[in-house]
Amino acid sequence: MPQADILLEAGTNELEVIEFFIDEGPERGHCAFGINVAKVLEVIESPGLTPLAGAPHPCFMGAIPLRGLVLPVLDLAVWLDIPRVPHKNEIILVTRFNDRTTGFLATGVTLIHRVLWRDVEPPHPALANLAGNCITGLVRLEDRFIQLLDLEKILLELDADLAAGPMPAPSASRLRALIVEDSGIMRQMIHDRLEEANFEVTLARNGQQALDILRDPGRTPPDIVISDIEMPLMDGYTLTKTIKDDPRLAATPVVLFSSLVTDELRHRGAEVGADGQITKPQFANLADLARSLIASRTRRGGEAA
């Protein structure tokens, strides 16, 4: 499957969602889910995997060869703790993010939809704050909803080594960072790592909330904005472009910290003026880059004076 998302212009607050479903049986019917097309390399037919005895997690179905790769396959229904009626022609969504290629088993694929992030409804705070929540947003399509899945959360919980690594060294002076991230688990991890690096952290759940904070005259402006890309209401690309187009905010460094920061998609962040881009979950590199960008801004300000 081609990555059609790269045809979208960065900063327009659009995304393309591939809709897939899990058949929960005649009483419950099909449950619709979606993920960003930019994360999907292709969709293949499942070879009919069965759960492995003694697997590290019940959702792990084993691995299959795919053009020189060994592709681990996870059963989404098992992870989501919902029933799945087996079918002959089930599919595997082959994804690439967090520097990992992973397959996710589902019943079938429906369509690809182009939508606006402003029309993606964030989950209710009571759901969003649950430790096990992996739904980042809801897309309304006429008579039904598509639930957007937080696949990064699944991989992080299955492989703790993804978030491992040395803690960043603390800054000599206290710095202020605005973190914009819709995933609760990732938001807390970034918060903790930057606090350890001597940052005073303010949190926002999406780009619109972050923009409201930045434009609030009663708040002390942050030294840097660190933003995810995929978020309900306003994505990170649109937030970055809006900041850089605003003379009052344009000097504030913006770092995009996302699983969508890849060699193929890095140009999109550059198009909207991002000062830096890092692939999740490189936390130590994130703190170092933030300090470097803040120092560069300070030097430029001193030279201008």
Rank of each mutant, 00 (worst) to 15 (best):
G108L: 02
G11P: 08
P122E: 05
L127G: 06
L74K: 03
A172M: 10
F199H: 11
I6T: 08
F33V: 01
R100F: 03
T262W: 09
A251H: 15
V201I: 14
T12N: 00
I190D: 07
F257K: 13
Q282P: 05
T252L: 09
F104K: 03
T262V: 08
R205E: 13
L66G: 15
T262G: 07
R205P: 09
A251R: 11
N206G: 11
E45L: 02
K280V: 12
V139Q: 10
A163S: 14
F97D: 02
G276M: 00
N129M: 10
L158Q: 07
K39I: 03
F21T: 03
L49G: 09
R140N: 14
I278W: 07
I22F: 02
V201T: 11
Q282D: 08
N36Y: 11
A274L: 04
E157I: 04
A53R: 15
L211W: 10
K280T: 10
D5G: 08
A250F: 06
Y237N: 04
L49C: 06
P2Y: 03
E90W: 02
C134A: 14
K241P: 06
D75W: 04
L233D: 06
N129T: 12
F257T: 15
R140C: 06
T220Q: 12
A172Y: 12
A197Y: 12
T240L: 00
R28F: 08
A128S: 14
W79T: 09
I35M: 03
W117V: 04
E142R: 11
T101A: 03
E303R: 05
G108V: 01
L69H: 12
Q147I: 04
I135C: 14
E230R: 01
R96N: 14
L249G: 05
